[in-house]
């Protein structure tokens, strides 16, 4: 998996995904990502750790479910089980706009490059793409459309009427 930032840059992923089945003593050092179920189950243990914590939401697990705990997380991972399942777009937006989350929001799962710009506009800050993905296509997808007709989670330059220019 390659990790692409919202500006198209490729970065190495500092996070480790913690298997739900792994016991509490087996938690590695450094930043880990847990499922919502694991967070709810092992919260006491996880909170004692001295490293960043990320949480991973399935598409039906909506923003409201973690809203009260958001200050515990440095990362929220949103899963798209199918690229047609657009719930993550609302989840990202709510995390940013309603709950004021400023950490990383990462999209993972079945996505197509053509969704990259929409994800970013909804507040997603990184996407996890397959190793064989054509990164040029992904990057290009951010630049194809430079005008939007509605406000969203990211900054933009208002033009006349409903229109805004998206900053590259």
């Amino acid at each position: 998996m390659a990790l692409l930032l919202e500006n198209g840059a490729v970065v190495t992923d500092p996070w480790t995904v913690l298997d739900d089945a792994a016991g509490s003593d087996g938690i590695p050092e450094g930043p880990v990502i847990v499922s919502l179920e694991r967070w709810q189950r092992d919260r006491a243990v996880l909170e004692l750790r001295n490293a960043p914590l990320g949480i991973r939401l399935k598409s039906h697990q909506l923003a409201g479910e973690i809203a009260a705990d958001l200050d515990r997380f440095g990362l929220v991972v949103l899963e798209l089980p199918k690229f047609r399942d657009g719930r993550a777009f609302s989840t990202a937006r709510l995390l940013r706009e309603r709950y004021g989350f400023t950490g990383e929001i990462r999209a993972t799962g079945a996505m197509i490059p053509d969704q990259f710009l929409f994800l970013v506009r909804c507040g997603v800050s990184s996407v996890e793409v397959p190793d064989n993905a054509d990164l040029a296509v992904w990057r290009h997808a951010l630049t194809e459309i430079t005008i939007a007709y509605q406000a969203a989670a990211t900054a933009d330059e208002p033009l006349s009427l409903l229109r805004r220019r998206l900053s590259p």
Binding site: F89, L119, Q150, A152
Partner: peptide, 16 residues
């Protein structure tokens, strides 16, 4: 027309 613009490539509501 206002709704046409607002709905055009709406980033949140394109995969309903």
């Amino acid at each position: 027309e206002i709704m046409r613009q607002w709905s055009t490539l709406n980033p949140e509501f394109s995969y309903l």
